[in-house]
């Protein structure tokens, strides 16, 4: 069989993380629901984490794992604040559609 399929190298993991990152960016750009936008941002952070852990494995540096752990903590904190803001926005206007948030325009 083709060695690209059977022999998994660092490139496989990194390309996977790039694809996940791109999906996250697409989600942020096309979705209007703020909740889904936040989930897409989480996808981006996860993509970066995969890259970090792959590089940590590649360089044999366990510090990358500690950084990934810090990133997970930061992501959790960000989600908590983001969801709080989302709830506050929903309380005021009964929707969370980012394209309809146009009070602040000129």
């Amino acid at each position: 069989m083709n060695s690209v399929v059977t022999h998994i190298g660092y490139g496989h993991f990194l390309v996977l993380s790039a694809i996940l990152f791109a999906i996250g960016v697409v989600g942020v750009l096309i979705r209007r629901n703020a909740l889904i936008v936040m989930m897409s941002i989480e996808l981006m952070l996860n993509a970066a984490n995969i890259a970090i852990i792959t590089f940590a494995r590649m360089h044999g540096d366990v510090g990358g794992h500690s950084f990934a752990l810090v990133v997970i903590a930061v992501a959790a904190a960000e989600v908590a604040v983001g969801l709080a803001i989302l709830v506050a926005v929903f309380r005021g206007r009964r929707h969370i559609d980012v394209d309809r948030m146009t009070t602040l325009k000129y």
Binding site: R31, R32, N33, L83, R94, H95, D97
Partner: peptide, 14 residues
Amino acid sequence: VIMILNRPEDEPWG
């Protein structure tokens, strides 16, 4: 949070 919001999206694509 989805439970709190409890409403489907009007139009998923911008």
